[in-house]
Computed example of a mutant assay.
Amino acid sequence: MTVSAADLAGELKQLRRGRGIAAPQLAERAGPALRAVCGTTEDDENAAIRRRLTECLSEWTRALPDDLRTAVLAAFGLHPDAVKPFYQDRVRWLAKYLERDDRTARRRIDEGMDRLAEVAVASTSESDAEASRPSRRWHTEDLRVTLALDQPIPEAFEFRRIVADADEITELDLALTLTDSVYRGEAIGTDDLRVDVFHGGLLIGRAMESTDRVGLALRLPEPLRRHSKHEIALRFRAEIRHPHFVCVPRHPVDQFDLHVRFARPMPTEVVKLERVFQDDASDDAARGDSLIADASGEVHVHFRGLEPGFAYGVRWKVPESGSRGLEN
């Protein structure tokens, strides 16, 4: 369905009436344009529609100026200080917040709705274009990794929330690389790289994609439709002889949070690597911000907007370093 900004703005202005997003019969009030841009269906119940609309509206308002963002959130009853049962009460709250009269508050809301519709239509068009590409059938919204190097065999726990950018996502293609592996030219066995799924799917495939990269196929419990989210938890265990850990995504990653706990003796240097070429992750010439481990022997780094093919993570130096690293 092709959605115009004018049609969507009209539906948004209808939705703001009464209890707004908290309306008890939300399934009847959400119009076809709004359903189309938010990815809801005729079969969705009120709770599912309310959750999806809240996610979409909150995301779209981030592109608005602060005053219009506040006006729109208040109109829908999404602003925490404007959760009031009637639209007129929310208008009065906004007028007081802006230190203006009710008429000005209403104009500000109308302007915000029109701008919001433009943002929504533009973002949906971009999503359609991206979803048509094989590499954008899904992406990672949040990736959290904890790497413990003080274990007999280093362990990495990965918690990942993915978002479907197309319908019928049944399987995730993941991969890990053991860089400068002593097994170069040979298959990396299950004893060299242990992978355990804690929740979120079933590991159904494992294949060598190159001399040191292992491809993993994770079957999901049920197919995901566009815009739906799913969480998985994995554990990886492998010897790390080259001192670095980086994420080299094959699908976009919105944010990546990494904790590394070092073994004794402590590293003599730790650097943050951000958007470096994959082959340069182990090269001392690739520099980044210096990091200092805390009293527990840990460092914590955070990245946003990770681009496929580039490396993000940390590299460290220890008195005796070997020649192996781990990338996911």
Rank of each mutant, 00 (worst) to 15 (best):
A22F: 08
D81M: 14
P80C: 11
R52A: 14
L64Q: 13
Y87S: 07
L26R: 04
C38S: 15
R50C: 04
L34M: 14
V37N: 05
L57H: 00
R51H: 07
R35K: 13
R35H: 12
A30N: 01
D89V: 00
D89R: 13
A48S: 07
V91P: 06
A27M: 11
V83F: 02
A30M: 11
A47H: 08
D66F: 01
A82G: 08
R50T: 13
R29H: 06
E28Q: 13
P32R: 10
R50A: 15
L53G: 00
A27I: 08
V72M: 05
L64D: 04
Q88D: 13
A36E: 12
R69Q: 14
D67K: 11
L68Q: 11
E59N: 15
I49V: 11
A74K: 05
L73F: 07
C56F: 09
C38M: 11
F86W: 09
A30C: 10
L57N: 01
P85V: 12
L68T: 00
L78T: 05
A23Y: 06
A82W: 02
A71R: 02
V72D: 01
T54R: 08
L57T: 03
H79W: 10
R50L: 02
A71Q: 03
D66V: 03
R51A: 13
V91D: 05
E45N: 09
L34H: 01
A63M: 14
L53H: 04
A74V: 02
G31M: 12
A74D: 02
R52T: 11
P65Y: 10
G39Q: 07
